[in-house]
Each structure stands twice: as structure tokens, then as C-alpha cells.
Lab assay of single mutants.
Amino acid sequence: SKICLVCGDEASGCHYGVVTCGSCKVFFKRAVEGQHNYLCAGRNDCIIDKIRRKNCPACRLQKCLQAGMNLGARKS
């Protein structure tokens, strides 16, 4: 099975251009559409994995963007 390129959980498919799990898919959509201005309490290098993905939305969003997630991406 495929793994989420953001948190490493089991992926549910290709979302916004990137193979991700459902949790990261929903997080990314809400983060971008809600125009959240997340700030990292650390050094913008928090570990984002299945267990810690909820700890720092700033670093999670950064990881989504680095993976290439794009709200305008067509479903493939």
C-alpha cells in the first residue's frame, strides 16, 4: 500500500496532486481555504509523522506544500 508523503500514514489516494492520507488531505484543504496563519513554536523543523502530525500545523502545512500539494490540482 502507498504511504502519505506528508505524515507517512497509509495513503488513501492522490489528493491535490500528491499521494496523501485522508487526514492530511482534509487538513490541507482547511488550512488553505481558511487562510490560517499558523506559526511554529519551534524552528520550523518539527517532525511530522502519523503520531505527531497534529502537534504543529505550521510545519505540517509547510510539508504539504513542499510535497507539491496544490488546491487547484486536478484529480488524477
Rank of each mutant, 00 (worst) to 15 (best):
S1T: 07
S1P: 05
S1N: 14
K2C: 08
K2H: 06
I3P: 02
C4L: 01
C4E: 01
L5Y: 08
L5D: 04
V6Q: 01
V6N: 01
G8K: 12
E10N: 10
E10W: 12
A11G: 10
A11M: 05
S12Y: 15
S12K: 05
G13R: 14
C14M: 14
C14E: 12
H15R: 05
H15K: 14
Y16M: 07
Y16E: 12
Y16A: 10
G17V: 03
G17S: 10
G17W: 04
V18S: 09
V18T: 02
V19D: 13
V19P: 13
V19R: 12
V19S: 15
V19K: 13
T20S: 12
T20V: 14
T20W: 02
C21M: 00
C21G: 00
C21S: 01
C21Y: 01
G22L: 07
G22T: 06
S23N: 15
S23Y: 10
S23F: 04
C24G: 00
C24H: 01
C24W: 00
K25R: 09
K25P: 09
K25E: 12
V26D: 14
V26A: 10
F27W: 03
F28L: 03
F28T: 02
K29Q: 13
K29M: 10
A31H: 02
A31V: 15
G34Y: 13
G34I: 06
G34H: 08
G34M: 06
Q35F: 05
H36N: 13
H36F: 11
N37Q: 12
Y38K: 11
L39F: 11
L39W: 06
C40N: 02
C40I: 01
C40G: 00
C40S: 00
A41G: 14
A41P: 06
A41L: 06
G42E: 09
G42K: 10
R43G: 13
N44F: 08
N44D: 15
D45E: 14
D45F: 04
D45S: 07
C46N: 00
C46A: 01
C46E: 00
C46Q: 00
I47V: 12
I48R: 05
D49Y: 04
D49L: 03
K50N: 03
I51Q: 15
R53T: 10
R53P: 09
R53H: 07
K54A: 10
K54L: 06
N55V: 12
N55P: 05
N55E: 07
N55F: 07
C56Y: 02
P57W: 11
P57D: 15
P57Y: 08
P57S: 10
A58Y: 07
L61S: 02
L61D: 01
L61R: 04
L61K: 14
Q62R: 10
K63R: 07
C64S: 06
C64K: 00
C64M: 12
C64E: 00
C64W: 02
C64P: 00
L65T: 11
L65A: 10
L65F: 12
Q66R: 12
Q66Y: 07
Q66E: 15
Q66I: 11
Q66N: 05
A67D: 01
G68Q: 04
M69C: 05
M69Y: 02
M69T: 02
N70C: 04
L71F: 03
R74M: 12
K75V: 15
S76Q: 07
S76D: 11
S76C: 05
